[in-house]
Computed example of a mutant assay.
Amino acid sequence: MARKGPAGGTPATVALTRAGIEHTVHTYDHDPGAASYGLEAAEAMGIDPGRVFKTLLASVDRRLVVAVVPVSGQLDLKAVAAAVGGKKAVMADPADAERATGYVVGGISPIGQKRPLPTVVDETALGHDTVFVSGGRRGMEIELAPVDLVGATGATVAGIGR
């Protein structure tokens, strides 16, 4: 069941609040057996999966890059490499992703990470008034305007989903 919760408790919500960026925190009961965290979130909150974006980490020429794409699609590794001026991209090792971001897999937020990483948001995000991204833990999503997501992360916008 989806419910709105208070905007506190994770580095992502703290960063947004400090920056004065309007956002809404939504929580739901996370199922540890869920096959897809993002699709689970969309279903639990009763929203179009095209508005829920997953945060993935890729290694582009051995440099970690954050990719934010709709949960209803996949990351195009060649496109994310091109978006950051790289040649080759592979999915990052989950342990490396957790270490670099300070979040656990399934709850990695593109906002408020331990250290800033190059970030690319899929261009489809700009087609929505608001989008949902992980709030920094499983069962927590942040709803915000896509331009605020781009601003908060210093992201590049490119066609990186398929």
Rank of each mutant, 00 (worst) to 15 (best):
R51T: 12
L75E: 06
P70M: 03
L77S: 12
Q74D: 09
A34Y: 13
A2S: 14
P94S: 04
A92K: 04
G33P: 00
L57Q: 12
G50N: 12
R63I: 07
V52L: 12
R3P: 03
S36L: 09
T17W: 01
P116A: 13
A125N: 05
V105R: 10
M1R: 10
L77K: 15
R137A: 11
E143V: 05
G73I: 08
V14A: 03
L64G: 02
K87W: 10
R115C: 04
E43H: 14
V71M: 01
A81S: 02
A67W: 08
A97D: 08
D61H: 10
V131D: 09
P118Q: 07
A83Q: 04
T156H: 03
S134W: 04
K4H: 01
M91H: 04
T17Q: 09
L77C: 07
D93E: 09
L126C: 06
T156W: 02
V157A: 01
H23A: 03
A12W: 01
G8I: 14
A79F: 15
A83D: 08
A34V: 15
A41V: 02
S134Q: 03
G46W: 15
V52M: 10
R18W: 13
T156D: 00
A145R: 15
V104I: 13
G73Q: 14
E22I: 01
V68D: 13
I108Y: 06
L126K: 15
F53M: 06
K114V: 12
G106T: 03
V80Q: 07
A92Y: 02
V133P: 00
E98T: 05
R99W: 07
D148S: 10
G151M: 09
V25W: 12
E43P: 01
T27R: 15
A81M: 04
G86H: 14
K78P: 08
A58S: 14
R51G: 00
T24P: 00
G102M: 04
A58M: 14
V157E: 04
L75T: 11
K114H: 10
V69W: 13
K4N: 06
